[in-house]
Amino acid sequence: MSLLEVEDLAIHFGGVKAVDGVSFSVEKGEVFAIIGPNGAGKSTIFNLISRIYQSTLGRIQFDGQDITASRAHDIAGLGIARTFQNIELFDHSTVLDNLLMGRHTHRRTNFVQDILFLPKVRREERQHRRRVEQVIEFLELEAYRKKMIAGLPYGVRKVVEIGRALATGPKLILLDEPASGLSVEETRDVAFWIEDMRRDMGLTVLMVEHDMSLVNQVSDRVMAVANGRTLAMGTPAEVQAHPDVMAAYLGTGAAA
């Protein structure tokens, strides 16, 4: 059975059918990319999966469980982590604290224990820290540990957000345009990390990306969407050769 199954998913904002009957499934250990012109509905699909938006129609199943009606704050605990297209970090906290916030679903203490800072709290903190340090090492964020997010360059913030998602210890990670705004070198790093997430961490990756060279390099399967509908699905080469996909890209003037 697939890790993530999306069936006939749709959401309408008034008259705008942002997502209009999309179906796809992501297998365990797969890197699955969603491509499409601006406004196609890619980020909206992410928001539907993370339950920030309420779907109008359709069904979402994750790991054998129906999450169509789950609450947004229960999604992380099931093992789905995500990044946002327009970086949503906690700007007035340090990199370390942002990553530690990613450990929220693993907390076992309540606020009274926290206020008294019982030995249990310290033990748990050490454990969270150990996990977070692994993420820091993986993404080479050592130099930024104690830096405030507000003062960091764009590229680093982008990486920190991936780190925060990894710190939750997910099964599935949703990356919304992980390479947008990054330099060629930074994009290459992102490609390596995605490879490692799949190979070393056993993660499943669902990503939205405009950079076709990155998509070609890392993804097993690609789905092209436009106007909230699926245009094509298959290997990166198949999808890019699909006449509808070429038309959609040429139609909006974006280079494929």
Partner: peptide, 25 residues
Amino acid sequence: NLMRSPTGRSFLAVRDSEVSARALG
């Protein structure tokens, strides 16, 4: 103590980005 513990961090998270706070559980 609160501010160096998970509870305090969840306060800051809610303050700085509600949407990612929710996405983190």
